[in-house]
Computed example of a mutant assay.
Amino acid sequence: MGDFLRRLRGEELKSAPTVTSAQLSLADTLNKKGEAAYHAKKLDEAVSLYLEAIANNPEHGQAYSNLGLAYQKLNRNAEALWANRKAIALASGPNTDTVKASSYFNIARVYENDGLWAEALDSYQSALGHKDHPAYRGGIEKMKQKLGQN
Rank of each mutant, 00 (worst) to 15 (best):
2 G>S: 06
3 D>H: 10
5 L>T: 00
7 R>Y: 08
9 R>T: 03
9 R>V: 00
9 R>K: 11
11 E>N: 12
14 K>T: 04
17 P>F: 01
18 T>V: 14
21 S>Q: 09
21 S>R: 07
21 S>D: 09
22 A>I: 11
28 D>W: 10
29 T>L: 11
32 K>G: 02
37 A>G: 04
38 Y>V: 03
39 H>F: 13
42 K>V: 05
44 D>F: 12
45 E>M: 07
48 S>A: 15
49 L>R: 04
53 A>N: 08
54 I>L: 08
55 A>M: 12
55 A>S: 15
57 N>M: 01
58 P>V: 03
58 P>H: 04
61 G>S: 05
64 Y>Q: 02
66 N>Y: 11
67 L>M: 01
68 G>C: 05
75 N>K: 15
78 A>V: 11
79 E>N: 15
84 N>F: 01
85 R>D: 06
87 A>L: 08
88 I>W: 06
88 I>R: 02
89 A>P: 00
93 G>T: 08
94 P>C: 14
96 T>W: 12
97 D>I: 07
98 T>P: 00
101 A>G: 05
106 N>S: 01
107 I>K: 01
109 R>S: 10
112 E>W: 12
113 N>Q: 13
113 N>A: 13
114 D>W: 12
116 L>H: 04
118 A>W: 00
122 D>Y: 07
123 S>R: 04
129 G>Y: 09
131 K>D: 05
131 K>M: 07
132 D>M: 10
134 P>A: 12
134 P>F: 14
135 A>R: 05
136 Y>C: 00
141 E>S: 06
144 K>R: 15
146 K>A: 06
148 G>N: 09
148 G>A: 09
150 N>K: 14
150 N>S: 13
